[in-house]
């Protein structure tokens, strides 16, 4: 398969939330965005700028009111539940601010979940792939730990491994360092950079922290549901996991 160069393409995407009969909130008002394979992009904006909505639409968790959204050349905007679930499973890896790990599962079992929903893997195959993904985030020695036995940074790395395991087209991270101390934050950013640089994985990070955004190679700024700037980062910072990300 010859993968298209453009992974994500949004054309005039509009999203309007309806609250009751009369009140409507325009969250996105005509967004055009194109993300190529292997990019590392930060989406920035104050709260209420529509960045979460944009993230949800890119993650196929929500559908735009109008406009087109092509993921790997496929128009996602008019798909049903079953196809959307498949897209989320196969093409998208989510990383959340609050990790969203299931409390009773071991790290290995957390990472196996997307493989279970994908279907078609033997148990041994699932285990092998999950171990591999955990090794990629440096948790090969924490396979059987439960979330309450892991530090915040380690929990977020389990979540990253879970996002990775189905080899998605793109990893979408929503404030991935928001719940972490600066050292764990550096750890997580280091992993994103390494995945992006060494494995060519496309990463989109939604953040409101400029320091985080400066670790990416392109910053898209949103305000009031529109893109107000889209610029490359001249000299991206390199995260050093042995040192704190920044001092507050």
């Amino acid at each position: 398969m010859n993968a298209p160069e453009v992974v994500i393409e949004l054309q005039d995407v509009v999203k309007i939330y309806r609250l009751g009969r009369e009140v409507t909130i325009p969250a996105l008002q005509g967004v055009n965005l194109r993300i190529r394979r292997g990019e590392m992009v930060a989406i920035m904006g104050p709260s209420g700028s529509g960045k979460s909505t944009l993230m949800n639409i890119m993650g196929a968790l929500d559908q735009p009111t109008s406009g087109a959204y092509y993921l790997e050349g496929q128009n996602v905007a008019r798909l049903g539940d079953r196809e959307l679930a498949r897209i989320r499973n196969q093409h998208i890896g989510f990383v959340f601010q609050s990790f969203n790990l299931l409390p009773r599962l071991t790290a290995l079992e957390q990472v196996e979940l997307p493989l279970i929903y994908a279907g078609g893997h033997s148990r041994r195959e699932r285990r092998r792939q999950a171990e591999h993904a955990l090794a990629m985030v440096g948790l090969a020695d924490r396979l059987h730990h439960r979330p309450n036995e892991l530090s915040g940074g380690q929990q977020q790395r389990v979540a990253i491994a879970r996002a990775l395991v189905n080899r998605p087209s793109i990893i979408l991270a929503d404030e991935p360092t928001g719940n972490l101390d600066s050292r764990s934050g550096a750890e997580v950013m280091h992993i994103f950079q390494r995945l992006n640089r060494d494995h060519g994985i496309t990463v989109v990070i939604v953040t409101h922290e400029p320091e985080i955004a400066l670790h990416t190679r392109r910053i898209v700024r949103l305000q009031d549901g529109r893109i107000i700037s889209d610029e490359p980062v001249p000299e991206p910072k390199i995260a050093d996991p042995s040192r704190a990300l920044y001092t507050r």
Binding site: L61, D81, A85, R86, R88, Q90, L113, Y117
Partner: peptide
């Protein structure tokens, strides 16, 4: 509820 949301984000269909 959050677990259900997460499972859906990971690719669970309504049927699952």
């Amino acid at each position: 509820t959050r677990e259900i949301g997460l499972r859906k984000a990971l690719g669970a269909t309504r049927q699952d």
